[in-house]
Each structure stands twice: as C-alpha cells, then as structure tokens.
Design a protein around this nucleic acid. Structure first.
Length: 281
DNA sequence: CGTTACCTGAAA
DNA sequence: TTTCAGGTAACG
C-alpha cells in the first residue's frame, strides 16, 4: 500500500519519536515470523536488543533504521503494512504481527493484514537496495534520465514507472496520477513518447510525489502515519479509483484498464494516445 | 516481457 | 459469490 510519500511520512514522524531510543525487546507472531524474517524471531531479537536507533532513512519504499552497531534494520510494508508508535501498555492494534519495544516505554507496532511485509537486518545497503533506480526527488532523476530509461522500450509507460529498478518509490496511485498530470495514456509504448511529453511526465512525477508528501500520504484503505492518523492525499486524486466518475477537468468518465497487471485509471479525453495529433489542454 | 503466487479480508 | 487490493518475486 504505501508508496514513497507514505513511507516518507512515516520516516519523518518516527524521526521525531524514536531517534536515540534503545531497543529492549522484540516480539513476532509465530505464524507471521517465517514470512516476515529470514531467520528466527529469537535470532532477530538477540541481534537488535540493546541497540539504539541513530537515524531513520528511506530509499524507495524501504524504511531503514540505522542502529548503533553499524547495522540496519530494513523494513518494507508492501501492501497492507503499518508501523505505528504506541505506549507499551496500549492495547494491540488490528492485525498486529510484531512489535519492537523501547526503553522509554514505547513500542513500534508492526501491523500487516496480508503478511506481505518484510524485515531484514543488513550490514550493507546493497543487500536490499542494490537494484533500485534513482529517487524521483533526487537531482540525478533529470528529464534526460527519464528520457533515457523510456527510450527504445515497447512496454507501456506505466509499467516502466512502476519498475523500481528504473525509478524507486512510485506505485499504483502516483503512477496513475503522474500520467494524468502529464496528459499521457498509461498504455502508451514508453519509447513512443515525444521529448515534450517526457518533459511533462518528469515534471508530473516530481510534482505528484512532492504533493503526496505535503499531504502526508494517501489513505484509501490501510495506510496511516506513525501516529495512526490518515493522510489527506486521497481527497486530491484526479483519476485513481475514480472509474466511471467525471474527470474534474473535462467531465468525461474515467476509464479503468489493466496495465502491467495493475488496475489503471485515466481520462480518455485528457490522456489521448501518443502520436494522435494534439492533446487537448 | 506478461501472469501467477504470496495472504486475508473488504466491498460489490 | 465474485472481484479487487498503495507490492514484489518467481515463473514461462
């Protein structure tokens, strides 16, 4: 569920709450443990107990807890994961699968209805992040960088945007929203985009990601921030999950197709097929 | 490349 | 009952 803006919101929240905290205990639901961890819960507990959290970073959709022994507790929330900060005496959250307890009397509660989330304890970022493409808000993600990753590809442009090895952090919501903002049909072959369309897409990507962070993420179903509060971005989406509803710009009903195996939403009027004369706007 | 599988519901 | 789900990894 969480894409870059949602993970970044959690990172910022937890940076205010958990920096300097010492881990004193860890619990993992035995039924979830084989899916969540590489090794046993006991081994993980032994490894992190006594460590302090020095810093929290994010790369793509990974949240990275830097520990005081040089190692990193890397987490990925996948579809339904939540990380919420609670007092240790607070009742369990819905679908709570694990927690990390701190000296101050607080827990990080790991909740995950579908159990797709993953934890790794790593010594080197490459173990988990080696294949990730550039951050969309990093200067290295230029319009020219985007152009070169689209060039010559026949795959739908949306499939390229979702490929974490090309750009790190875009998911289904922000890919659809960026393509709407750029006026590009999601199933357009990536390599067929003209230079002007690529430039619009580059600006649209950085724009929707920035706004998503400003609005503290999109809460359609499962996402909440580190305090358990919903984000606001779902109130501002133009196409995502608006199938059949009128486009805010032109009134045409929003279409839904499947691209790259994912549900895909677009306005057939504002996002015409590439090469099909002039866009409206 | 596009599907299928991983899990457990929630919504239609 | 059937479909759908903010993500990836494995498979053909």
């Amino acid at each position: 569920m969480p894409e870059l803006p949602e993970v970044e919101t959690i990172r910022r929240d937890l940076t205010k709450l958990a920096i300097g905290e010492r881990i004193v205990d860890v619990w993992v639901d035995p039924a979830t443990a084989p899916l969540l961890l590489d090794g046993s819960p006991e081994a993980f507990r032994e490894e992190v107990c006594g460590r302090r959290i020095l810093r929290i970073d994010r790369r793509g959709k990974y949240l990275l807890f830097r520990l005081d022994d040089g190692r990193t507790w890397a987490t990925h929330l996948r579809m339904t994961g939540r990380l919420v900060w609670r007092r240790s005496d607070a009742p369990p959250e819905p679908y709570e699968r694990a927690w990390v307890r701190f000296e101050s009397g607080h827990d990080l509660r790991w909740c995950d209805l579908r159990k797709f989330g993953r934890w790794r304890l790593i010594s080197c970022d490459d173990e988990v992040l080696g294949q990730l493409g550039p951050e969309p808000l990093d200067p290295s993600f230029s319009a020219e960088a985007l152009a070169s990753m689209l060039r010559g590809r026949r795959a739908p442009v949306k499939a390229v945007l979702l490929d974490q090895r090309r750009i790190a952090g875009l998911g289904n919501i922000y890919a659809d929203e960026a393509l709407f903002a750029a006026g590009i049909r999601p199933d357009t072959p990536a390599g067929s985009l003209e230079a002007a369309a690529v430039r619009r897409l580059h600006e649209a990507i950085t724009d929707v990601i920035r706004r998503g962070i400003e609005r503290r993420g999109a809460s359609f179903r499962d996402y909440v921030d580190a305090n358990g509060e919903e984000g606001a971005q779902q109130m501002y989406v133009q196409v995502f999950r608006r199938t059949g509803k009128p486009c805010y710009r032109c009134g045409t009903p929003i279409s839904r197709i499947v691209v790259g195996g994912r549900s895909t939403h677009f306005c057939p009027h504002c996002q015409p097929q590439a090469g099909q004369a002039e866009r409206v706007r």
